[in-house]
């Protein structure tokens, strides 16, 4: 009986005020709401202030807007190659994909070793936290900055781009891999230790087989990221490939049609990559 009584309020239907009625009264102005409103008001004030204080230099906003729309229309609706042949564009794409593949493979191999040492269940607490701290630092600095840092030694170009991108990939994959390793059931590791297995035997016979689907999907995610990175580095660091072609077409020839064509090409490849990734994940999930 007592139990029923205590439960009773839970089962009573809530009486809802009609829409608009007493709304202000129902929601008192607490700290959170006040803070939100103040923030919004500040943003609004800053926006107005910014637009009012721009140096427009006599630009007609209406015309500029129309011009932008027109540029966009040319870019998207009339893609065309003028300075490169289709073969050259494909070659550029191949170089960009190779850049992405190379940096991912280098990153994955290094990350596999450091990931094992960073996993708490396979390593000592000191080594694990040292590596995790180190890769957190590497990840916190953007890829482009690493490329520029390596460019000091190697000069701007493909070497700096590959080193910098691989470096950031290591930072990213060590975190992903070590977390995958830490998910491995501690009982399985214990069982293999109890058979007299050594560390490498436990890693190869229990940890890697258990974590392999995670490792593969993280590596593919990183490959996609590196593909985008390779495009950007082609332009920014002169690493070559389609990114550099894109840079030439836009900043050198001012050819919107060509930029449009390259954009579509990149989009197509990105879609293919995405599809492959999804397929692999589905297949891995079926296996699990």
């Amino acid at each position: 009986m007592q139990r029923e009584q205590s439960l009773a309020p839970l089962w009573q239907p809530k009486v809802r005020p009609r829409l608009g009625q007493h709304r202000a009264l129902n929601k008192p102005l607490d700290k959170g709401t006040l803070f939100m409103r103040l923030t919004m008001a500040t943003f609004l004030a800053l926006t107005v202030l910014a637009f009012a204080s721009f140096d427009y230099q006599g630009i007609n906003i209406y015309n500029a807007f129309l011009g932008t729309i027109d540029n966009f229309r040319v870019l998207m609706l009339s893609p065309q190659l003028t300075h490169f042949s289709l073969v050259e564009a494909a070659e550029g794409m191949l170089i960009t994909l190779s850049l992405a593949l190379l940096t991912t493979v280098i990153g994955a191999i290094l990350a596999l070793f450091f990931g094992l040492l960073a996993a708490q269940n396979l390593s000592s607490p000191l080594v694990s936290s040292l590596i995790k701290g180190g890769v957190a630092f590497i990840r916190a600095v953007p890829t482009i900055l690493w490329v520029l840092i390596f460019a000091i030694a190697a000069g701007l170009g493909s070497v700096a781009a590959v080193t910098g991108m691989a470096f950031h990939s290591v930072g990213y994959l060590v975190k992903a891999y070590s977390e995958a390793f830490e998910e491995v059931d501690s009982g399985v590791i214990e069982a293999l230790r109890a058979t007299g297995a050594s560390w490498w035997q436990i890693v190869c016979q229990a940890v890697l087989p258990t974590a392999q689907s995670y490792l593969l999907s993280w590596t593919f995610v990183r490959f996609e990221i590196n593909f985008v990175g390779a495009l950007a580095m082609g332009a920014a660091a002169g690493a070559g490939g389609l990114g550099f072609d894109l840079f030439l077409a836009s900043a050198h020839y001012f050819d919107l049609r060509e930029v449009g064509f390259i954009t579509y090409l990149v989009l197509a490849v990105a879609l293919v990559l995405e599809t492959i990734t999804t397929q692999i994940k589905v297949r891995l999930r079926v296996q699990t």
């Binding site: 009982g187 399985v188 214990e190 058979t195 007299g196």
Partner: peptide
């Protein structure tokens, strides 16, 4: 390691590598 080979162990949760 050598001594552990002579001591078999079985567990409540079996602790097999499922894959």
């Amino acid at each position: 390691r050598k001594m552990r080979t002579k001591v078999g162990m079985i567990f409540q949760h079996y602790n097999l590598v499922n894959r």
